[in-house]
Design a protein around this nucleic acid. Structure first.
Lengths: 264, 264
DNA sequence: CGTTTCATTTCATATAATGAAACGTCATTT
DNA sequence: AAATGACGTTTCATTATATGAAATGAAACG
């Protein structure tokens, strides 16, 4: 009997399905492309045969994950992904529970307001209430943020699960700007300050000239379920923010937390 | 030899891959659920064996389309769908080309502004600039609209492909409110008015008390590529809108069209 | 401490995915 | 107008690989 080359090389057995794996890679490939791709192109990129990819695309198209241009016959990502993404976003309790309060926060501060939640190892923007400025600094729903280089992230590291904080602090910390915190010591020291104060900032740490002021939202069990923040030019949200701004953000977060206590 | 029941029934051969089909149905099932589902639940809903679904979930999870709750072991939709949805949205030229102009439109009218595009048989919201009101009527990016019962939709029926218009007009027209247009004759007559005027409204047709005023955006070939609209309470956008509002919306659409002429 | 409930793994079987090559269609070229 | 090339689509024999029943292991429950 021959020795399985995969097992011999120490690789664990696949355990999943390779057919599905290939199809999912096709979807991801199409989303990355900025224009529609030809069948041959996709097949070559994934090193699979045209026939195989073709059949997968037919099924993906049937479900709306992929669409084919009627004119050129080329393939591109389907809008089902957008629809499913929005459906998923709506499932987060905090989104509906917080909207009214966030509108008020936007009106009081004039700045854009964002809501984030961490799922496993990802920190994702769930909601954006646009500010009054013409230029938009804030990140849109569906965007992923870095834990160590965003005010939202620091809230989750300071008040979220310790395992996550330990994992992030130990891992490599990428520098987005010269101001990004990249050493474990500096990060942990900053988190201590965040815990003390109850709010976090990240001046110039993700984009130079932009600052964010974030505060935690807890549920009835005092478990962190979301973070809210105002986002704007450093000119409006200074590195040491106006006490009034801090009062507004922390106050809104506390009121949303209280709102989450009711609906269990 | 037995006769294949599918072929005997006149059904065309599958042509696609049934494995992938099952996996995609699993994703859609999980998105629909409001809570995390157990493996057995999913398997039963899709009438497949637990083992099969399990392997698919493993692969889907590897790609982030699905996530497993560490505590309960149950499965739910993964945030990859949100991330892919946002990536897809950004691909539409009109989104980046129009933002600044839309901000100005919002400031001039005080109402929420939305952008839509039709892809095949679907009309989808691409962008939302929130108005100044606390209560939000406008639809979010990723939402699908009805062609016959929305101002955006009427723009696409009036200025888009004739095939689509014919197909929609012939099909059944669902009534969302008592004011929704549900007869072919009334719809076609309304579209004539839209073509004449260059703008469309849909007072009380999708939600009672809400009105939308939409205008078309064309590219350098005079092909419809998007529609923009202001959305608000009927109190602010009356069934026969203020001439000033019409001027603003139609003017913004024209300027965005001109902007799309440059970048070819 | 037994019982239930669940996710996960095993394994033999045959279903269903696979790739090479042929086909049909359209657009461009000579 | 015929020839070429590019591309999506279909065919078909082969076997890789997805499949389901049942076993396993691990929690949660009473």
């Amino acid at each position: 009997m021959l020795i399985d080359p995969d097992k011999a090389a120490g690789k664990p057995a696949p355990a999943g399905t390779s057919t599905l794996d290939l199809a999912l890679r096709a979807v991801e490939y199409l989303v990355q492309q900025s224009r529609a791709s030809s069948l041959a192109q996709i097949a070559e990129a994934l090193s699979a045969s045209k026939a195989t990819i073709y059949r997968h695309l037919v099924t993906l198209q049937k479900h709306g994950f992929v669409r084919q241009d009627a004119q050129t016959g080329r393939y591109e990502a389907g809008i089902k992904l957008m629809v499913l993404g929005e459906a998923l976003r709506q499932r987060f309790d905090i989104v509906s529970a917080a909207r009214e309060e966030l509108m008020i926060l936007r009106d009081h501060t004039g700045q854009a307001v964002t809501v984030c939640a961490a799922i496993d190892a990802e920190l994702i923007v769930l909601e954006l209430i646009q500010g009054r400025t013409l230029i938009e600094f804030a990140t849109r729903p569906g965007t992923r943020l870095a834990f160590h280089a965003s005010a939202h992230g620091k809230i989750w590291l300071a008040f979220g699960s310790q395992e996550r904080t330990a994992a992030i602090a130990d891992g490599p910390l990428q520098a987005w700007t010269p101001a990004t915190i990249i050493t474990k010591e500096a990060l942990l020291a900053d988190l201590d300050r965040v815990r003390e104060r109850g709010w976090a900032t990240a001046p110039d740490e993700v984009i130079t000239g932009v600052n964010t002021l974030a505060a935690p939202v807890f549920d009835h069990r005092q478990i962190l379920v979301g973070s809210i923040a105002i986002v704007g030019a450093t000119q409006f949200i200074t590195p040491v923010p106006d006490p009034e701004q801090i009062r507004e953000v922390v106050g809104s977060a506390a009121r949303i937390s209280r709102g989450l206590t009711w609906q269990v």
